[in-house]
């Protein structure tokens, strides 16, 4: 299970991407610190970040909407866009890569339009 959070300008330029993976990590042959890959070598668990039933898992993302530079020895932060879109997607990716055909199953897709005020000081 993969949670992807991206931020894009209104003309589609992505300036932020973050990802959280939820999955049990099986232990190779029930020993050591290595993850088992195929089902034939899974016999334990070394880590588990799957979503537990009847519980709410919360993730928080801080998205910088600026690029930082230095001008005359001072730090300057220039805004990327006053209007932008945050996309939140939750997908089930049982194996392979997300772009492989037939692998990725998108479960949830939510977009939020956000604005940062212009002007002022």
């Amino acid at each position: 299970m993969v949670l992807d959070v991206t931020a894009k300008t209104t003309d589609g330029k992505e300036f932020y991407r973050n990802q959280v993976i939820y999955m049990p990590t099986p232990q190779q042959m029930g020993r050591g610190d290595k993850m088992g890959r195929g089902p034939y070598e899974k016999s334990g668990m070394i880590h588990d970040s799957s979503l537990p039933p009847l519980r709410t898992t919360q993730e928080k993302f801080e998205i910088p909407v600026y690029v930082e530079s230095t001008k005359d020895g001072k730090t300057v932060r220039t805004i990327i866009a006053n209007d932008f879109v945050v996309d939140v997607e939750i997908s089930y990716l049982p194996y392979g890569k997300k772009e492989d055909p037939g692998n990725n199953q998108k479960w949830v897709s939510i977009s939020k339009k956000l604005s940062i005020e212009k002007g002022g000081k």
């Binding site: 299970m1 949670l3 959070v5 931020a7 939820y22 999955m23 049990p24 588990d48 799957s50 979503l51 537990p52 039933p53 009847l54 519980r55 709410t56 898992t57 919360q58 993730e59 928080k60 993302f61 801080e62 998205i63 910088p64 909407v65 600026y66 730090t75 300057v76 932060r77 805004i79 990327i80 932008f84 945050v86 939140v88 939750i90 089930y92 049982p94 939020k112 956000l114 940062i116």
Partner: peptide, 23 residues
């Protein structure tokens, strides 16, 4: 004097299934 434009996104995911997801 440095302005920092930012956004906060909070995602709450409740698993309503009868087992962990994925499993």
């Amino acid at each position: 004097t440095i302005m920092t434009p930012a956004a906060t996104v909070i995602v709450d995911i409740k698993n309503k299934a009868g087992h962990p997801i994925p499993d």
